[in-house]
Design a protein around this nucleic acid. Structure first.
Lengths: 208, 208
DNA sequence: TCTGTTGACTTACACTGTATATTTACCTCG
DNA sequence: CGAGGTAAATATACAGTGTAAGTCAACAGA
Protein backbone atom coordinates (compact mmCIF):
# COMPACT_ATOMS: atom_id res chain seq x y z
CA UNK A 1 0.00 0.00 0.00
CA UNK A 2 2.87 2.31 0.62
CA UNK A 3 3.60 2.20 -3.07
CA UNK A 4 0.21 3.44 -4.16
CA UNK A 5 0.64 6.58 -2.12
CA UNK A 6 1.99 9.00 -4.72
CA UNK A 7 3.85 12.12 -3.81
CA UNK A 8 1.27 14.35 -2.20
CA UNK A 9 -0.56 16.85 -4.36
CA UNK A 10 -0.11 20.48 -3.52
CA UNK A 11 -0.71 23.82 -5.11
CA UNK A 12 3.01 24.20 -5.63
CA UNK A 13 3.47 20.86 -7.28
CA UNK A 14 0.45 21.44 -9.50
CA UNK A 15 1.73 24.77 -10.67
CA UNK A 16 5.22 23.54 -11.38
CA UNK A 17 3.93 20.56 -13.28
CA UNK A 18 1.67 22.84 -15.26
CA UNK A 19 4.61 25.07 -16.16
CA UNK A 20 6.63 22.13 -17.39
CA UNK A 21 3.67 20.77 -19.27
CA UNK A 22 2.96 24.03 -21.06
CA UNK A 23 6.60 24.51 -21.92
CA UNK A 24 6.56 21.08 -23.47
CA UNK A 25 3.14 20.86 -25.10
CA UNK A 26 1.97 24.41 -25.50
CA UNK A 27 -0.71 26.37 -23.74
CA UNK A 28 -3.55 25.14 -25.91
CA UNK A 29 -2.82 21.58 -24.88
CA UNK A 30 -3.32 22.35 -21.22
CA UNK A 31 -6.55 21.03 -19.78
CA UNK A 32 -7.46 20.11 -16.27
CA UNK A 33 -7.80 16.47 -17.23
CA UNK A 34 -4.45 16.27 -18.93
CA UNK A 35 -2.76 18.07 -16.10
CA UNK A 36 -4.42 15.67 -13.72
CA UNK A 37 -3.10 12.80 -15.78
CA UNK A 38 0.36 14.28 -15.62
CA UNK A 39 0.10 14.13 -11.86
CA UNK A 40 -1.52 10.72 -11.72
CA UNK A 41 -4.75 12.12 -10.45
CA UNK A 42 -8.27 12.93 -11.59
CA UNK A 43 -9.04 16.38 -12.92
CA UNK A 44 -11.32 17.31 -10.08
CA UNK A 45 -8.63 16.69 -7.51
CA UNK A 46 -6.88 19.80 -8.70
CA UNK A 47 -9.78 21.86 -7.48
CA UNK A 48 -8.83 21.10 -3.94
CA UNK A 49 -5.77 23.24 -4.39
CA UNK A 50 -6.74 25.72 -7.07
CA UNK A 51 -10.14 27.38 -7.32
CA UNK A 52 -10.39 27.30 -11.11
CA UNK A 53 -8.40 27.27 -14.29
CA UNK A 54 -7.91 31.00 -14.34
CA UNK A 55 -6.25 30.83 -10.97
CA UNK A 56 -4.10 28.01 -12.26
CA UNK A 57 -2.85 30.20 -15.08
CA UNK A 58 -2.21 33.06 -12.70
CA UNK A 59 -0.35 30.70 -10.46
CA UNK A 60 1.93 29.62 -13.25
CA UNK A 61 2.83 33.23 -13.93
CA UNK A 62 3.43 33.66 -10.24
CA UNK A 63 5.85 30.73 -10.23
CA UNK A 64 7.86 32.23 -13.03
CA UNK A 65 8.04 35.66 -11.51
CA UNK A 66 9.04 34.09 -8.25
CA UNK A 67 12.08 32.59 -9.90
CA UNK A 68 13.24 35.97 -11.13
CA UNK A 69 16.07 37.22 -9.02
CA UNK A 70 17.06 40.80 -8.62
CA UNK A 71 20.66 41.25 -9.69
CA UNK A 72 23.11 42.11 -6.90
CA UNK A 73 23.68 45.72 -5.97
CA UNK A 74 26.27 47.43 -8.02
CA UNK A 75 27.76 50.86 -8.24
CA UNK A 76 26.65 51.09 -11.84
CA UNK A 77 22.90 51.46 -11.71
CA UNK A 78 22.47 51.20 -15.44
CA UNK A 79 24.23 47.87 -15.62
CA UNK A 80 22.19 46.54 -12.80
CA UNK A 81 18.94 47.45 -14.46
CA UNK A 82 20.13 46.12 -17.77
CA UNK A 83 20.91 42.82 -16.14
CA UNK A 84 17.45 42.66 -14.60
CA UNK A 85 15.85 43.11 -17.99
CA UNK A 86 18.16 40.55 -19.51
CA UNK A 87 16.83 38.03 -17.05
CA UNK A 88 13.29 39.03 -17.75
CA UNK A 89 13.85 38.52 -21.45
CA UNK A 90 15.53 35.18 -20.85
CA UNK A 91 12.45 34.10 -18.97
CA UNK A 92 10.40 34.93 -22.04
CA UNK A 93 12.60 32.70 -24.15
CA UNK A 94 12.47 29.84 -21.71
CA UNK A 95 8.71 29.97 -21.20
CA UNK A 96 7.19 31.69 -24.20
CA UNK A 97 3.61 30.62 -23.70
CA UNK A 98 3.55 31.56 -20.07
CA UNK A 99 5.18 34.85 -20.85
CA UNK A 100 2.33 35.58 -23.24
CA UNK A 101 0.00 34.77 -20.40
CA UNK A 102 1.84 37.12 -18.13
CA UNK A 103 1.46 40.12 -20.35
CA UNK A 104 -2.04 39.20 -21.42
CA UNK A 105 -3.97 38.32 -18.32
CA UNK A 106 -5.30 40.97 -15.98
CA UNK A 107 -3.88 39.58 -12.79
CA UNK A 108 -5.48 39.55 -9.40
CA UNK A 109 -2.53 39.67 -7.11
CA UNK A 110 0.35 42.02 -7.31
CA UNK A 111 2.95 39.89 -8.88
CA UNK A 112 6.13 41.76 -9.15
CA UNK A 113 6.11 44.11 -6.24
CA UNK A 114 9.56 43.29 -5.00
CA UNK A 115 10.93 43.67 -8.45
CA UNK A 116 9.27 47.01 -8.88
CA UNK A 117 10.36 48.20 -5.48
CA UNK A 118 13.95 47.23 -6.06
CA UNK A 119 13.93 48.75 -9.47
CA UNK A 120 12.57 52.04 -8.31
CA UNK A 121 15.00 52.13 -5.45
CA UNK A 122 17.85 51.85 -7.89
CA UNK A 123 16.51 54.61 -10.07
CA UNK A 124 15.85 56.90 -7.14
CA UNK A 125 19.34 56.40 -5.85
CA UNK A 126 20.60 57.19 -9.31
CA UNK A 127 19.07 60.60 -8.85
CA UNK A 128 15.72 60.40 -10.60
CA UNK A 129 12.73 62.16 -9.16
CA UNK A 130 9.88 59.79 -8.27
CA UNK A 131 7.82 60.80 -11.24
CA UNK A 132 10.69 60.49 -13.64
CA UNK A 133 11.59 57.13 -12.15
CA UNK A 134 8.09 55.95 -12.90
CA UNK A 135 8.32 57.08 -16.50
CA UNK A 136 11.65 55.37 -16.90
CA UNK A 137 10.37 52.23 -15.28
CA UNK A 138 7.44 52.07 -17.61
CA UNK A 139 9.46 52.89 -20.70
CA UNK A 140 11.98 50.17 -20.04
CA UNK A 141 9.27 47.69 -19.11
CA UNK A 142 7.30 48.44 -22.22
CA UNK A 143 10.28 48.12 -24.49
CA UNK A 144 11.42 44.85 -22.98
CA UNK A 145 8.01 43.26 -22.94
CA UNK A 146 7.43 44.33 -26.52
CA UNK A 147 10.78 43.14 -27.75
CA UNK A 148 10.55 39.79 -26.03
CA UNK A 149 7.06 39.27 -27.35
CA UNK A 150 8.17 40.11 -30.86
CA UNK A 151 10.94 37.58 -30.55
CA UNK A 152 8.53 34.93 -29.39
CA UNK A 153 6.43 35.57 -32.44
CA UNK A 154 9.61 35.64 -34.43
CA UNK A 155 9.01 39.21 -35.52
CA UNK A 156 6.00 38.03 -37.41
CA UNK A 157 4.71 41.52 -37.96
CA UNK A 158 7.56 42.02 -40.31
CA UNK A 159 8.07 40.18 -43.51
CA UNK A 160 10.83 37.63 -43.40
CA UNK A 161 9.73 36.95 -39.89
CA UNK A 162 8.98 33.31 -39.49
CA UNK A 163 7.58 31.69 -42.54
CA UNK A 164 7.51 33.79 -45.62
CA UNK A 165 10.65 33.67 -47.63
CA UNK A 166 11.33 36.73 -49.61
CA UNK A 167 10.01 35.15 -52.75
CA UNK A 168 6.62 36.54 -51.83
CA UNK A 169 7.35 40.21 -51.69
CA UNK A 170 8.08 41.80 -54.99
CA UNK A 171 11.13 43.95 -55.04
CA UNK A 172 9.57 47.00 -56.67
CA UNK A 173 6.45 46.96 -54.55
CA UNK A 174 8.45 46.81 -51.35
CA UNK A 175 11.90 48.14 -52.10
CA UNK A 176 12.82 49.05 -48.55
CA UNK A 177 11.85 45.70 -47.19
CA UNK A 178 13.74 44.00 -49.96
CA UNK A 179 16.93 45.84 -49.32
CA UNK A 180 16.56 44.80 -45.71
CA UNK A 181 16.20 41.15 -46.47
CA UNK A 182 19.87 40.16 -46.38
CA UNK A 183 20.19 41.74 -42.95
CA UNK A 184 17.18 40.03 -41.43
CA UNK A 185 18.86 36.68 -41.05
CA UNK A 186 22.01 37.68 -39.31
CA UNK A 187 20.89 40.25 -36.82
CA UNK A 188 22.25 39.42 -33.42
CA UNK A 189 19.17 39.64 -31.27
CA UNK A 190 21.00 39.95 -28.03
CA UNK A 191 22.91 42.89 -29.40
CA UNK A 192 19.81 44.40 -30.91
CA UNK A 193 17.97 44.14 -27.64
CA UNK A 194 20.81 45.82 -25.80
CA UNK A 195 20.94 48.49 -28.45
CA UNK A 196 17.30 49.31 -27.86
CA UNK A 197 17.85 49.49 -24.14
CA UNK A 198 20.76 51.77 -24.86
CA UNK A 199 18.54 54.13 -26.81
CA UNK A 200 16.27 54.56 -23.85
CA UNK A 201 19.11 54.95 -21.40
CA UNK A 202 20.66 57.55 -23.62
CA UNK A 203 17.45 59.49 -23.62
CA UNK A 204 17.17 59.14 -19.88
CA UNK A 205 20.67 60.36 -19.25
CA UNK A 206 19.87 63.51 -21.11
CA UNK A 207 17.02 64.19 -18.72
CA UNK A 208 18.26 62.81 -15.44
CA UNK B 1 -40.29 35.37 -49.15
CA UNK B 2 -38.10 38.33 -49.88
CA UNK B 3 -38.07 39.16 -46.22
CA UNK B 4 -36.53 35.90 -45.12
CA UNK B 5 -33.51 36.52 -47.31
CA UNK B 6 -31.00 38.00 -44.86
CA UNK B 7 -28.04 40.01 -45.92
CA UNK B 8 -25.70 37.50 -47.50
CA UNK B 9 -23.01 35.93 -45.39
CA UNK B 10 -19.44 36.61 -46.37
CA UNK B 11 -16.01 36.35 -44.88
CA UNK B 12 -15.89 40.10 -44.57
CA UNK B 13 -19.20 40.39 -42.81
CA UNK B 14 -18.33 37.55 -40.47
CA UNK B 15 -15.04 39.14 -39.49
CA UNK B 16 -16.52 42.56 -38.91
CA UNK B 17 -19.33 41.14 -36.84
CA UNK B 18 -16.81 39.16 -34.83
CA UNK B 19 -14.77 42.29 -34.15
CA UNK B 20 -17.81 44.16 -32.91
CA UNK B 21 -18.88 41.20 -30.84
CA UNK B 22 -15.53 40.82 -29.15
CA UNK B 23 -15.30 44.53 -28.48
CA UNK B 24 -18.66 44.31 -26.80
CA UNK B 25 -18.57 40.96 -25.00
CA UNK B 26 -14.91 40.08 -24.68
CA UNK B 27 -12.82 37.48 -26.40
CA UNK B 28 -13.76 34.66 -24.05
CA UNK B 29 -17.39 35.08 -24.96
CA UNK B 30 -16.72 34.47 -28.63
CA UNK B 31 -17.83 31.08 -29.85
CA UNK B 32 -18.79 29.92 -33.28
CA UNK B 33 -22.36 29.36 -32.15
CA UNK B 34 -22.77 32.77 -30.62
CA UNK B 35 -21.20 34.44 -33.60
CA UNK B 36 -23.55 32.49 -35.80
CA UNK B 37 -26.43 33.70 -33.68
CA UNK B 38 -25.23 37.25 -34.07
CA UNK B 39 -25.49 36.78 -37.83
CA UNK B 40 -28.79 34.92 -37.76
CA UNK B 41 -27.19 31.72 -38.90
CA UNK B 42 -26.06 28.35 -37.60
CA UNK B 43 -22.52 27.88 -36.39
CA UNK B 44 -21.53 25.52 -39.15
CA UNK B 45 -22.45 28.00 -41.83
CA UNK B 46 -19.45 30.06 -40.85
CA UNK B 47 -17.20 27.27 -41.99
CA UNK B 48 -18.16 27.96 -45.56
CA UNK B 49 -16.24 31.20 -45.34
CA UNK B 50 -13.60 30.58 -42.72
CA UNK B 51 -11.67 27.33 -42.36
CA UNK B 52 -11.60 27.27 -38.56
CA UNK B 53 -11.67 29.42 -35.49
CA UNK B 54 -7.99 30.20 -35.60
CA UNK B 55 -8.40 31.66 -39.06
CA UNK B 56 -11.32 33.66 -37.75
CA UNK B 57 -9.13 35.21 -35.08
CA UNK B 58 -6.41 35.94 -37.60
CA UNK B 59 -9.00 37.50 -39.84
CA UNK B 60 -10.14 39.84 -37.09
CA UNK B 61 -6.60 41.02 -36.60
CA UNK B 62 -6.34 41.48 -40.32
CA UNK B 63 -9.44 43.67 -40.34
CA UNK B 64 -8.01 45.93 -37.69
CA UNK B 65 -4.65 46.30 -39.35
CA UNK B 66 -6.42 47.02 -42.59
CA UNK B 67 -8.08 50.01 -41.00
CA UNK B 68 -4.77 51.50 -39.94
CA UNK B 69 -3.81 54.31 -42.20
CA UNK B 70 -0.34 55.58 -42.79
CA UNK B 71 -0.15 59.24 -41.89
CA UNK B 72 0.41 61.63 -44.80
CA UNK B 73 3.92 62.44 -45.88
CA UNK B 74 5.50 65.26 -44.00
CA UNK B 75 8.80 67.03 -43.98
CA UNK B 76 9.26 66.08 -40.36
CA UNK B 77 9.93 62.37 -40.35
CA UNK B 78 9.86 62.07 -36.61
CA UNK B 79 6.39 63.57 -36.36
CA UNK B 80 5.12 61.29 -39.05
CA UNK B 81 6.35 58.20 -37.30
CA UNK B 82 5.05 59.44 -33.99
CA UNK B 83 1.64 59.89 -35.50
CA UNK B 84 1.71 56.37 -36.90
CA UNK B 85 2.40 54.95 -33.47
CA UNK B 86 -0.29 57.12 -31.95
CA UNK B 87 -2.78 55.49 -34.26
CA UNK B 88 -1.48 52.07 -33.44
CA UNK B 89 -1.89 52.76 -29.77
CA UNK B 90 -5.37 54.15 -30.31
CA UNK B 91 -6.27 50.91 -32.00
CA UNK B 92 -5.18 49.07 -28.89
CA UNK B 93 -7.49 51.19 -26.79
CA UNK B 94 -10.43 50.74 -29.12
CA UNK B 95 -10.03 46.99 -29.47
CA UNK B 96 -8.10 45.75 -26.48
CA UNK B 97 -8.91 42.07 -26.79
CA UNK B 98 -8.09 41.92 -30.45
CA UNK B 99 -4.91 43.82 -29.86
CA UNK B 100 -3.87 41.15 -27.39
CA UNK B 101 -4.60 38.65 -30.09
CA UNK B 102 -2.48 40.56 -32.53
CA UNK B 103 0.61 40.49 -30.42
CA UNK B 104 0.00 36.99 -29.15
CA UNK B 105 -0.85 34.85 -32.12
CA UNK B 106 1.82 33.64 -34.50
CA UNK B 107 0.22 34.80 -37.70
CA UNK B 108 0.22 33.03 -41.01
CA UNK B 109 0.06 35.87 -43.44
CA UNK B 110 2.19 38.94 -43.44
CA UNK B 111 -0.11 41.45 -41.91
CA UNK B 112 1.51 44.79 -41.88
CA UNK B 113 3.75 44.83 -44.86
CA UNK B 114 2.59 48.15 -46.20
CA UNK B 115 2.99 49.71 -42.82
CA UNK B 116 6.47 48.33 -42.45
CA UNK B 117 7.46 49.37 -45.94
CA UNK B 118 6.22 52.89 -45.47
CA UNK B 119 7.85 53.13 -42.13
CA UNK B 120 11.21 51.99 -43.36
CA UNK B 121 11.00 54.30 -46.33
CA UNK B 122 10.57 57.20 -43.98
CA UNK B 123 13.51 56.18 -41.87
CA UNK B 124 15.74 55.57 -44.86
CA UNK B 125 14.91 58.98 -46.26
CA UNK B 126 15.74 60.43 -42.90
CA UNK B 127 19.24 59.15 -43.43
CA UNK B 128 19.35 55.86 -41.54
CA UNK B 129 21.29 52.95 -42.95
CA UNK B 130 19.12 49.91 -43.62
CA UNK B 131 20.40 48.05 -40.61
CA UNK B 132 19.94 50.99 -38.31
CA UNK B 133 16.49 51.55 -39.72
CA UNK B 134 15.62 48.01 -38.79
CA UNK B 135 16.85 48.47 -35.25
CA UNK B 136 14.92 51.68 -34.91
CA UNK B 137 11.81 50.08 -36.33
CA UNK B 138 11.97 47.24 -33.89
CA UNK B 139 12.75 49.45 -30.93
CA UNK B 140 9.81 51.73 -31.58
CA UNK B 141 7.53 48.81 -32.30
CA UNK B 142 8.53 47.04 -29.15
CA UNK B 143 8.06 50.05 -26.98
CA UNK B 144 4.67 50.88 -28.40
CA UNK B 145 3.35 47.35 -28.24
CA UNK B 146 4.58 47.01 -24.70
CA UNK B 147 3.18 50.30 -23.54
CA UNK B 148 -0.20 49.75 -25.11
CA UNK B 149 -0.40 46.29 -23.63
CA UNK B 150 0.49 47.61 -20.21
CA UNK B 151 -2.27 50.18 -20.53
CA UNK B 152 -4.76 47.53 -21.47
CA UNK B 153 -3.83 45.60 -18.36
CA UNK B 154 -3.94 48.85 -16.51
CA UNK B 155 -0.28 48.58 -15.56
CA UNK B 156 -1.14 45.58 -13.48
CA UNK B 157 2.46 44.57 -13.01
CA UNK B 158 2.82 47.55 -10.80
CA UNK B 159 1.06 48.02 -7.54
CA UNK B 160 -1.65 50.59 -7.66
CA UNK B 161 -2.36 49.28 -11.08
CA UNK B 162 -5.94 48.25 -11.31
CA UNK B 163 -7.34 46.87 -8.16
CA UNK B 164 -5.15 47.01 -5.15
CA UNK B 165 -5.48 50.17 -3.23
CA UNK B 166 -2.40 51.24 -1.41
CA UNK B 167 -3.72 49.90 1.85
CA UNK B 168 -2.11 46.61 0.99
CA UNK B 169 1.47 47.62 0.65
CA UNK B 170 3.13 48.63 3.85
CA UNK B 171 5.03 51.83 3.69
CA UNK B 172 8.25 50.59 5.22
CA UNK B 173 8.38 47.40 3.25
CA UNK B 174 7.92 49.23 -0.02
CA UNK B 175 9.01 52.81 0.55
CA UNK B 176 9.69 53.63 -3.09
CA UNK B 177 6.39 52.33 -4.26
CA UNK B 178 4.66 54.19 -1.50
CA UNK B 179 6.22 57.48 -2.33
CA UNK B 180 5.07 56.92 -5.88
CA UNK B 181 1.49 56.31 -4.96
CA UNK B 182 0.21 59.87 -5.14
CA UNK B 183 1.63 60.18 -8.64
CA UNK B 184 0.11 56.99 -9.98
CA UNK B 185 -3.35 58.40 -10.27
CA UNK B 186 -2.70 61.53 -12.19
CA UNK B 187 -0.13 60.53 -14.75
CA UNK B 188 -1.20 61.68 -18.18
CA UNK B 189 -0.81 58.54 -20.21
CA UNK B 190 -0.77 60.27 -23.53
CA UNK B 191 2.05 62.43 -22.35
CA UNK B 192 3.87 59.54 -20.78
CA UNK B 193 3.62 57.55 -23.96
CA UNK B 194 5.01 60.42 -25.98
CA UNK B 195 7.75 60.87 -23.45
CA UNK B 196 8.84 57.29 -23.93
CA UNK B 197 8.83 57.70 -27.68
CA UNK B 198 10.89 60.80 -27.17
CA UNK B 199 13.49 58.85 -25.23
CA UNK B 200 13.99 56.50 -28.12
CA UNK B 201 14.06 59.26 -30.70
CA UNK B 202 16.61 61.09 -28.65
CA UNK B 203 18.81 58.04 -28.59
CA UNK B 204 18.34 57.59 -32.30
CA UNK B 205 19.26 61.15 -33.11
CA UNK B 206 22.54 60.66 -31.34
CA UNK B 207 23.33 57.79 -33.65
CA UNK B 208 21.75 58.77 -36.94
C1' DT C 1 -36.80 22.40 -67.56
C1' DC C 2 -33.00 19.80 -66.09
C1' DT C 3 -28.71 19.76 -63.69
C1' DG C 4 -24.76 21.07 -60.96
C1' DT C 5 -23.02 23.90 -57.49
C1' DT C 6 -23.06 26.62 -53.65
C1' DG C 7 -24.02 27.50 -49.12
C1' DA C 8 -26.99 26.86 -45.03
C1' DC C 9 -28.71 23.29 -41.98
C1' DT C 10 -28.80 18.94 -38.99
C1' DT C 11 -26.72 15.68 -36.51
C1' DA C 12 -23.03 13.74 -34.03
C1' DC C 13 -18.62 13.35 -31.45
C1' DA C 14 -14.85 14.14 -28.62
C1' DC C 15 -13.44 17.33 -25.39
C1' DT C 16 -13.67 21.30 -22.22
C1' DG C 17 -14.39 23.53 -17.26
C1' DT C 18 -16.58 22.65 -13.20
C1' DA C 19 -20.88 21.77 -9.66
C1' DT C 20 -22.34 18.14 -6.79
C1' DA C 21 -22.16 13.98 -4.30
C1' DT C 22 -19.58 10.15 -2.71
C1' DT C 23 -15.83 7.51 -1.15
C1' DT C 24 -11.32 6.88 0.64
C1' DA C 25 -7.14 7.85 3.61
C1' DC C 26 -5.38 9.57 7.46
C1' DC C 27 -4.98 11.97 12.33
C1' DT C 28 -6.26 12.37 16.89
C1' DC C 29 -8.44 11.03 21.00
C1' DG C 30 -10.37 7.60 24.27
C1' DC D 1 -6.66 -1.00 19.74
C1' DG D 2 -10.88 1.16 17.60
C1' DA D 3 -14.05 5.46 16.70
C1' DG D 4 -14.81 9.60 14.83
C1' DG D 5 -13.77 13.58 12.18
C1' DT D 6 -11.57 15.85 8.41
C1' DA D 7 -9.34 16.67 4.24
C1' DA D 8 -8.55 15.29 -0.10
C1' DA D 9 -9.30 12.11 -4.18
C1' DT D 10 -12.93 10.18 -7.04
C1' DA D 11 -17.24 9.51 -9.66
C1' DT D 12 -20.88 11.29 -12.03
C1' DA D 13 -23.11 14.71 -14.56
C1' DC D 14 -24.08 18.89 -17.37
C1' DA D 15 -23.78 22.64 -20.37
C1' DG D 16 -20.88 24.49 -23.76
C1' DT D 17 -16.99 24.10 -27.14
C1' DG D 18 -14.83 23.29 -32.12
C1' DT D 19 -15.71 20.88 -36.02
C1' DA D 20 -16.31 16.42 -39.25
C1' DA D 21 -19.95 14.35 -42.04
C1' DG D 22 -24.08 14.18 -44.31
C1' DT D 23 -28.53 16.39 -45.97
C1' DC D 24 -31.20 19.58 -48.32
C1' DA D 25 -32.86 23.78 -50.66
C1' DA D 26 -32.00 27.79 -53.61
C1' DC D 27 -30.04 29.46 -57.48
C1' DA D 28 -27.03 29.34 -62.10
C1' DG D 29 -26.33 28.18 -66.70
C1' DA D 30 -27.44 24.84 -70.46
Amino acid sequence: MAITGRRPLSRRRILETAVRFVDREGLDALSMRKLGGELGVEAMSLYNHVPNKGALLDGMVEVLLGELEVPPESDNWEDRIREAYRRFRRMAHDHPDIFSLLITRPPEAMYGVWLAEEFLKTLREAGFEPRMALHAFRALNSYTVGYAMAEIRNFALEPGGSRMGAQQLSEDEFPRLSELKPHLEDVDRDAEFEFGLGLIFAGLRERA
